[in-house]
Write a protein that binds this DNA or RNA. Structure first.
Lengths: 193, 193
DNA sequence: TTTTTTATTGATTGACGCGTCAATAAAAAC
DNA sequence: GTTTTTATTGACGCGTCAATCAATAAAAAA
């Protein structure tokens, strides 16, 4: 009973199932069958639409990063002023849509995937560049030449907080993470307590 | 031609080979045979001494963390004064013995391992606690109550710098990483430029 | 209505890897 | 000098999994 136009639906179902499966196992060590079963289809169909396992992973990665990028973009359009822009980026990074245990686990594993798949590495580099550039754009007006270095540090801190979250049990605490990073940003901006 | 007392030698060879292999592949996706071959023995012997793959990984993790801990301890005994202690920890974290691409890759994968192996998770938690406690010990005399939060941030930043290094090609740049983290520490200590 | 295209899967294949075991050999203990 | 212990490996069984394929079925096109 094949309904037509299934491809995009199947693809999205697979991508979401992939993230869920990686999140649950905490590893890329998940089988195509597991992913396909969770997405409600046979593994053969997964291969049909994606070609292979690695491509499924890369698609999941692209999707995750797309969601994140959209979130940041959205937050940025609402922000006016350099400081507000930075805070918007940080808030978006730890918004409840991104900062859930599933996504955190997936994200960490994308770093591993990037060691193996050139395409994944490319994607991760795009994310890095964008994040740094976005932060620098907000920081440079306030810090001048020091803005670039500060942006690198903030970016690293964000990733570090993500990484550390992967060890914490239970759902990640977004607000706490935001406070943690923003406290550093405020320090960088010379606001003493 | 079995020489006696081989066990410790074999174990160490396997552990080092494991780190090298993970470093080269960037993944835990390495076979026991590959590890054993690199260590100059049969895979059967690896199983004989370690019991299984996961235990080999955990041993490699314990070893890596042991080297790191020793490095930090050594640097701490030479340091006097709170600020010096903090700088010593940071320097040790990015010393050329720890901050090489092989070790960075291994370290990242230990985070993945910790999602699967309870023992690995325990080890990583020990590392986290120790690092934070060491940093807090140096920061509290200088920052008072704020020291704890600052220690968390510095710890996260260190991990973040490690993570980001895993994407950079070529050997990690230790001095640069040290500068990056110390700049933040100095900021935290209220030293404006 | 026949043909083609799209959707879908069960079954299969081929490879690979972990862990085991029996067998060999040298040292140590007796 | 026999026995036990320690070291070591090749071979292999058993399971798993990615990927393929042939077969089925429904829609669309001709």
């Amino acid at each position: 009973m094949p309904k037509l136009g299934m491809e995009p639906i199947r693809r999205q179902a697979l991508v979401k199932a992939t993230i869920a499966e990686i999140g649950q196992h905490g590893t890329l060590d998940v089988t195509v069958s597991q992913i396909a079963r969770r997405a409600g289809m046979s593994s053969a169909l997964a291969h049909h639409y994606f070609g292979g396992k690695e491509q499924i992973f890369v698609a999941a990665m692209r999707y995750t990063m797309g969601v994140y990028a959209a979130e940041v973009r959205g937050a940025l359009t609402m922000a006016q002023g350099s400081k507000e822009r930075i805070e918007a980026i940080v808030r978006a990074s730890f918004s409840s849509r991104n900062f859930r245990s599933e996504t955190v686990a997936a994200w960490m594993n994308f770093y591993v995937l990037a060691q193996v798949s050139p395409e994944a590495r490319r994607l991760l580099n795009v994310y890095h560049r964008r994040l740094r550039s976005n932060l620098a754009q907000g920081l440079k007006p306030l810090l001048g030449a020091r803005g670039e270095a500060a942006a690198s540090r903030v970016a690293a801190l964000i990733d570090g907080v993500y990484l550390r979250q992967s060890l914490g049990e239970g759902e990640p605490n977004g607000p706490r993470a935001i406070r943690q990073v923003l406290e550093y940003v405020h320090l960088e901006l010379g606001e003493r307590r």
